[in-house]
Amino acid sequence: MQQLFWALGTVVIGVVGCAGYFYVSNLVLDTLLPGRGPDPVRAGRNINRANLIRPWLFLAPAILALGIYLVYPVIESVWLSLHDRSGQNFVGLSNYVWMLNDPGFRESMFNNMLWLLVVPAAATGFGLAAAALTDRIWWGNIAKSLIFMPMAISFVGASVIWKFIYDYRAPGEPQIGILNALVTWFGGDPQAWLTIPFWNNFFLMVILVWIQTGFAMVILSAALRGIPEETVEAAVLDGANPIQIFFRIKMPQIWGTIAVVWTTITILVLKVFDIVLAMTNGQWRTQVLANLMFDWMFRGGGDFGRGAAIAVVIMVLVIPIMVWNIRRANAEMKGH
């Protein structure tokens, strides 16, 4: 309980501190370079100077935070990936050579590619279907809210939910996991789903698809609603049926949004670690890059060189999307 008061105290100190920084630095600037005075030329020059400095006063804490927590680590990670486990001795590319020959890394890479193929496609597909269908019925908003709900659930919480679904009991015993209960009800044998190599990857992917479908649905639903009425009306007049209208008229107009949703989920897939850690911890051939990296970070006291090398691989996979995002943001800003 005491630590909660500490936390609240920190909030107050933090907020007051931030506000104080902005207020005082702004005040100092105004005092040093007064914008009013007997000499109008000087006052004007002061205003110009202050306007050059003020943005950086406003930006300083944010730039500091971004620098320490994101920019510096990216550079340092690349640097560390060229060093040994303690981070002291330079070893060149040997961590990357080790990686290429390591069965654990190959397995993770293969699984990650599977995840990348399946999860964004499935989540976007389900999301699109949910968006298109819920827009046509009167209880669509309630349905949307319920499909969206898993988005609020942590990966670990969702893992418990789905581990319960995959629960396995020996044949003959009552199955309390609903998947095995259904399988036995249809006359099949219960399976320990999470231990079946290759296919168990898909049982883990289901969890992320389940979480992310709501996200895809919300964005795509907004995009579908933004489609100009005239295009749809014209198609109706030409006698197109609803399915044709959806695939031939609506879909082509929201490709941009579909791409955004797809890439966003792709990035999430590359970072996903909690689900694998909680469900299998990489056993039974379900390892992925993010969990492998976590593993090497702490295994036997931690191998910072190898861990950093794996992180760099994840980063390299993200870079194309990053470039695409920046270009898109630039184009958008110029458009405004």
Partner: peptide
């Protein structure tokens, strides 16, 4: 606010949006 380097900073923020957390862990731990 108008100042030189603004567009570059915005682009940097957009880029940093997608930096994987994994990149930050080991350097920050150290």
């Amino acid at each position: 606010m108008e100042f030189p380097g603004r567009a570059l900073l915005i682009a940097a923020v957009v880029g940093l949006l997608v930096v994987p957390l994994q990149m930050s862990l080991i350097p920050l731990l150290r």
